[in-house]
Design a protein around this nucleic acid. Structure first.
Length: 227
DNA sequence: CTCCCGGTCG
DNA sequence: CGACCGGGAG
């Protein structure tokens, strides 16, 4: 029987699940070129393009885009219509405008070098908490509350938290993911969680019966979502 | 916290 | 239709 204290982080269960995810990730992680990059520009671009867009979709144009636009200046020097043409397969025109404006500002105000503090990142158009946190974590290696829809679903189910539309900005979810990411390589673990949530802890019909952490998971062990 | 928005794909 | 490695406004 689990503790009656709701929403208390169990360090043992967290540690067990983390170890399982790390093990699972080694064999089952997806391979994307942007995950191998340590360039702040490429990391920023990839997160920007992944905004509300499937990873498989982005992967089809990612190499082409980085080659054509190797830095922020090259984006700032083209036209919005060129940029739209080169990104038309992934859509979301407002995002393309935002990317263009980001490139202008970074070129003009920061000499083309992406500032790596969250406050400045958040001031850029189209950059919210997820992208700012992910960029800082991936570039510097610090532990940040990176909460995309996949990670929110995973954290919510695992700890038995009610998942709502605002969970990604919920203070409790942030605390839980920060705790979960307390490893030497949070970036890698984030990728693993995302892939795990994509393949096993899916939105509909999660594969709980074959899930490696069902015994310590609130959802998979039959606890369901506690209020 | 709630709601709306967006282009594309499975 | 729901979902996508969310952001912005209210």
């Amino acid at each position: 029987m689990k503790s009656d204290n709701l929403h208390i982080i169990d360090p043992v269960e967290t540690s067990l699940a983390r170890d399982y995810i790390l093990k699972w990730g080694v064999k089952n992680q997806r391979s994307f070129n942007w995950r191998l990059s340590n360039s702040s520009y490429e990391i920023f671009i990839s997160e920007f393009l992944l905004h509300r867009t499937r990873a498989g979709q982005v992967s089809e144009i990612y190499d082409f885009f980085i080659q054509r636009y190797p830095n922020f200046e090259s984006i700032a020097e083209t036209t919005k219509s060129n940029l739209r043409e080169d990104l038309k397969t992934i859509g979301l025109n407002w995002r393309i405008d935002a990317l263009y404006d980001c490139a202008l500002r970074i070129s003009r105000d920061y000499r083309g070098i992406l500032p790596l503090d969250k406050t400045t990142l958040l001031s850029l158009p189209g950059v919210g908490e997820y992208i700012a946190s992910a960029v800082v974590c991936f570039c510097i290696g610090s532990i940040e509350p990176v909460l995309d829809t996949n990670i929110v679903r995973f954290i919510g189910r695992f700890y038995g938290l009610k998942i709502t539309d605002s969970s990604r900005r919920n203070k409790r979810f942030k605390e839980f993911i920060l705790q979960f990411l307390k490893t030497k390589n949070p970036r890698q673990l984030i990728y693993y969680i995302i892939d795990f949530a994509f393949a096993v802890c899916t939105p509909s019909k999660p594969k709980c019966t074959s899930c490696p952490i069902k015994t310590v998971c609130n959802f998979g062990s039959g606890g369901g979502i506690r209020k």
